[in-house]
Computed example of a mutant assay.
Amino acid sequence: MMHLLVTRPEPDAQATAERLAALGIDSTLAPVMSRQTLSPNLPPARGFAGIAITSTNALRAMEDLGVLEAFRTIPAFAVGDRTAHEARLLGFTSVEAADGTLASLVTRIALARLPGPLFYPSGKHLSGDLAQALAPHGLMVVTSPVYEMIAETSLPKDVLTGLTEDRFGGVLLYSRRSAEIFAELATTRLPEIQKRRLPMLCLSENVAAALIENHFSRILLADHPSEDAMMALALAFAREQTGA
């Protein structure tokens, strides 16, 4: 049976493991980051014409802070279907989903022609500047970091051993920062030849770029930046490797 290493944070790591198991793929969880809710001085919800959501972690952090109720009736613009689904589950009444990328989210928000400013609850470490991207469209964005993803300082001993002994058929990576952290934690233990042959299943080219910079060269890309596409990639890869 194919055995993959899942690096995304909890609780998403467990959800991914369950989906892999349903496909007949075994997995080991080794989150390289964990979420920490910040204590921001958030602006009042009134006056905002929309809210941008680029991560389910932002929704979880807002829930931790007890501020979701005030924002639920504001039109929400989610980066992808999964984030949109989570927003609806948490009670947002108007949710539009982009196609999984920041560029598609910018387009979706720009086309909405909002009559006022946009609120953006973000992570402390931004992979893209939503405010700058929307500025040419004349839209003001108020960005408030509500969570931080804390990098792990090491991989579990059994995971490091498994990597050096080629026990994992591949590694699943969902963000550029997680790829950077994984590469940093693994690179001192893996010789160059193992780095070159270890399959890295990546959500996007942006994720893959961080691995290529660290000499991981066996890169597989999802057709679309979504969990469904990652599962399709994992299944196709497992079937190719096992001949099933």
Rank of each mutant, 00 (worst) to 15 (best):
A87E: 09
A87Q: 15
A87D: 14
A87G: 15
R88V: 12
R88A: 14
R88D: 09
L89A: 15
G91C: 11
F92C: 02
F92E: 03
T93N: 12
E96N: 12
A97H: 11
G100I: 14
A103S: 12
A103P: 02
S104P: 00
L105H: 04
V106N: 02
T107R: 14
R108G: 08
I109S: 01
I109C: 02
A110R: 15
L111T: 05
A112D: 10
A112Y: 06
A112E: 13
R113H: 11
R113A: 13
L114N: 13
P115D: 12
P115A: 14
G116W: 15
G116M: 11
P117H: 11
P117C: 08
L118R: 00
L118S: 05
F119P: 07
S122P: 08
K124G: 05
K124Y: 06
K124A: 05
H125E: 15
L126N: 13
L126V: 10
L126F: 11
S127Q: 10
S127R: 02
G128C: 09
G128T: 06
D129C: 03
L130C: 04
A131P: 01
A131N: 06
A133Y: 03
L134Y: 00
A135T: 09
A135C: 06
H137W: 01
G138D: 11
G138Q: 06
G138C: 07
G138M: 05
M140K: 05
V141A: 01
V141G: 06
V142I: 10
T143W: 01
T143N: 09
T143A: 05
S144W: 10
S144M: 08
P145K: 14
V146W: 08
Y147A: 08
Y147D: 14
Y147C: 05
E148R: 15
M149N: 12
M149E: 15
M149V: 11
M149W: 04
M149D: 14
E152D: 02
E152R: 12
T153R: 13
S154G: 02
S154F: 03
S154P: 00
L155E: 02
L155H: 04
P156Y: 10
P156E: 05
D158R: 08
V159W: 07
V159E: 02
L160E: 09
L160A: 07
L160R: 01
T161G: 03
T161S: 06
L163S: 04
T164R: 15
E165L: 07
E165D: 14
D166K: 04
D166L: 04
D166M: 03
R167T: 07
R167W: 12
R167P: 00
G169W: 11
G169H: 13
G170H: 02
V171T: 00
Y174D: 03
S175P: 08
S175G: 10
R177S: 10
A179T: 05
I181H: 04
F182M: 01
F182W: 02
A183W: 08
